[in-house]
Design a protein around this nucleic acid. Structure first.
Lengths: 202, 202
DNA sequence: GGTTTTACCCTAGCGGCATTAGGAAGCTGA
DNA sequence: TCAGCTTCCTAATGCCGCTAGGGTAAAACC
């Protein structure tokens, strides 16, 4: 009897690939075991349960995504940085829809508490926004709106909300133009006298 | 033997309620049958399968949502309309997360082809944007960005992306300020000489 | 090199879910 | 009243997540 030679890492990588190919919700323990030519129960030596498997996919995907964004943004500022960030974000999501979907799960705080990628991605966003001259609390507000716009756009695109036409590219890049204008004209707000605003999550 | 007196409409309404309470993915045929005190198989007299049930929830939720938005936007224009639209959108999504989630499914084109609500919601958006002086192709681009921003924001909020603090309200209303500024300063584009742009979906 | 220990993978089995087939009992209209 | 339709049932299939417990390959130790 030859062993399959699995490991948590291999299982996660295969699961991520499978998620990109057939959708995150099609990634089941059974299907994954089938892909490895192994019985379902065998996978439980490497992964606690289905939820943990998905969290692993998310952490893997999140790390990869942040890495790619960081590489593209490096050395840029202002609109250059914004466009590089946004395009890297979108390209990753379109090329790896399963991994991307996984990053959108609801996590228990401690599941992602020690995620370097998460902290890094917040830093990247804030660095970009500071180049636009923003500071708290606008930093937080603008960051949220940017994340929302990016995610919302990709979500609509992935779910077929608009046709998969060449036009989406134009629309996307014009939205980036618009967001650039938005950040340059951000309606600033003074932080309130008393503290409390500082504790906001990004 | 007393009959339960079910109907497609009653089943859908109960399913929508259940989705709001426990999450769309917890709405199963079994759970719903249990709620009615009926066997699983009985529901198949009223609903073709699980997918159709979810589509029904989506259509119901979409209609309700559009209705509420339309009521709020009626008689307003400019920033008033934008804020009314956005707040009605967000409030519905937060009060009815299950129905809202259902509206985000991927549909076959003919499943929603005859949805009045969908057409109406597009009209509402476009009317709002025309009041900002936009015309095609900016109408389409701005509409997409708005939908993306709204959906993205609510999605982040619902999935706990940021803390459930009072601050989210501030952040949201400042994002609306920013979007208003954006629409007033939208970087316009000329339509290309030859046709083709007109066929874009919203 | 032989032995012990570990860790991997298996068989077996539980309960939950979606779905279908076919039958019985209520309701409706002639 | 009785035929016919609808609603609900029982029964069964197959897929899935997950657990318990056992055997063996591979690694660790002497």
């Amino acid at each position: 009897m030859v062993r399959a030679g699995l490991s948590a890492a291999k299982v996660t990588e295969a699961a991520a690939e499978m998620a990109d190919e057939v959708g995150l919700d099609q990634v089941t323990i059974s299907a994954l075991a089938r892909r490895f030519g192994v019985k379902d129960a065998s996978l439980y030596s490497h992964v606690k349960n289905l939820r943990e498997l998905r969290v692993r996919i998310a952490l893997l995907g999140g790390a990869e995504m942040t890495e790619r964004i960081a590489a593209e943004v490096a050395g840029r500022a202002g609109k250059d940085a914004l466009v590089a960030f946004a395009n890297a974000y979108r390209r990753f999501a379109l090329e790896h829809p399963g991994r991307y979907a996984a990053t959108q799960m609801q996590f228990d705080p401690e599941e992602v508490a020690d995620s370097v990628a998460l902290r890094r991605s917040v830093e990247l966003t804030y660095g970009m926004l500071r180049a636009y001259g923003l500071s708290e609390p606008d930093l937080t507000d603008a960051g949220r709106l940017l994340r929302a716009a990016f995610h919302g756009y990709i979500h609509l695109e992935l779910s077929g909300g608009f046709a998969h036409s060449r036009q989406v590219e134009d629309s996307w890049s014009r939205s980036l133009d618009a967001l650039h204008v938005l950040l340059e004209n951000w309606p600033s707000h003074q932080p309130p006298e008393a503290g409390g605003r500082d504790e906001r999550m990004p």
